[in-house]
Design a protein around this nucleic acid. Structure first.
Lengths: 236, 236
DNA sequence: CTCTAGCGTCTGGCATGCTAGTGCGATAAT
DNA sequence: ATTATCGCACTAGCATGCCAGACGCTAGAG
């Protein structure tokens, strides 16, 4: 008997959340370890230890590592081992180039048509940013910073771009964790964010794109300086 | 005994081509079937038949399908089946938006600094395009079109962007195969390509970005019209 | 005739054992 | 002491068997 394609739209679409498989859990666990820095670049990943620690067989672990290899967070060397990917400063530059291209285009789109309620959320986020910057709350500001950028993308319903940007952020996050960014940047980052939001708010598409570009150019410069100051952390 | 991270740069880097694993072969096989249209959107993928036809066990097939699910070419419904992903016209629009953002930024970069020998290859490619357009050779022109865009990205050594764009092209290629694009577009596509190359050649970064943007806006319009003419092929 | 409840069959998810290939280290030869 | 060689221990890749869940069909109740 042949099974059918999903009849009409339906099924568990939205209604029931498909529970996370074991492979998903292992994936999240390893990914978190890598992003938090618990697993350093170049470190070997001991599958068997993971199996025992998480109480699963090698199958979910293998699947999870394959997924991580697909997004370039680990490299698999056949018949040798799996290792946490090293960071090449060349790649960091390219990630920022891609991010700049995407986010400035998205800001342009947002300047053309962004739902009003999203604009309200952005303004609220900005007020929190101001508070966090004033208090020198680096961790809080960073979380708000990430939310700010996500709000714009999600506000336009751009799912694919959101995924690409999340992937880029994963890699960049790893750099940021290892080498903390300077706290003195908070106020200027806040004002750059404000300029972006203002341009979007007044429907100035070109201005929004340009403001986002300038903002990410600044961010790129920070990464460049960090990389130059810590040459031992990078390859290439 | 703990294994070590890859000693210095090392190993089979470039020297020995790492042979394709069975999972890789299966991956390529299925992907080709999907992109060529042999497997229609929504079709069920029969793992066991694939196992027998390719003479492998279910493991490589499962790994391959997982990878394809990761790049959204198939959807896995747990305990039910694996299906070729359907195409949403909304996604097509977003793919083109991402492509426009990336490629126009890359064209800008190319206008700033593109190696001379790459520029030579591009000009050669353009001459072939002209010949193909004059002869009405649609298939040949399409191949040259793809190469034209790849030449610019690869000429700048942008590996990550190249991968993202290849992923996008996979999806868009599927649309193009199903619904052939109008042959009358060849000459105009050629002249748009020429404008892009000319701007890059004279080091006009802003002009190159703008020409690429205009070119992909045209392409987007084609896709939009195709989608409007064939509403039954798309969902959403 | 309609609707519901249960069963059967198919699927993907997972566990486990085996194979082939790799780098490292010890040992031997110079 | 230095270098070449061989073996060993470990890895990822693969095959296979089992399990639980989801869908479709059917039989029975209304």
């Amino acid at each position: 008997m042949n099974r059918k394609p999903p009849t009409s739209q339906k099924r568990l679409a939205g209604s029931r959340e498909r529970q996370a498989s074991k492979a998903d859990q292992v994936y999240r666990e390893i990914k978190h370890s890598i992003l938090s820095g618990a697993l350093s670049p170049g470190a070997a990943i001991d599958k068997i230890a993971l199996c025992e620690r998480l109480g699963v067989s090698r199958f979910p672990v293998t699947a999870a590592i394959n997924r991580l290899a697909f997004e370039r967070l680990v490299v698999i060397e056949p018949q040798h081992g799996s290792f946490v990917a090293r960071i090449a400063s060349r790649d960091v530059r390219e990630w920022m180039l891609i991010r700049r291209a995407l986010e400035s285009e998205i800001a342009r789109e947002a300047g053309r048509a962004l739902p009003a309620e999203i604009m309200g959320e952005i303004e609220r986020n900005l007020r929190y940013q101001q508070a966090a910057a004033a208090a020198g709350d680096v961790a809080g500001f960073y979380a708000l910073d990430v939310d700010f950028h996500k709000l714009i993308v999600d506000g336009l319903g751009l799912k694919q771009a959101r995924e690409i940007l999340d992937g880029l952020r994963s890699h960049l996050e790893r750099v940021r964790r290892i080498l903390l960014s300077p706290p003195g940047r908070l106020p200027s980052a806040y004002s750059e964010h404000s300029r972006i939001a203002a341009a979007i708010g007044r429907g100035d598409a070109a201005g929004a794109a340009e403001a986002m570009r300038a903002h990410l150019d600044e961010t790129t410069a920070i990464f460049e300086r960090i990389a130059a100051d810590h040459p031992e952390t990078f390859i290439g």
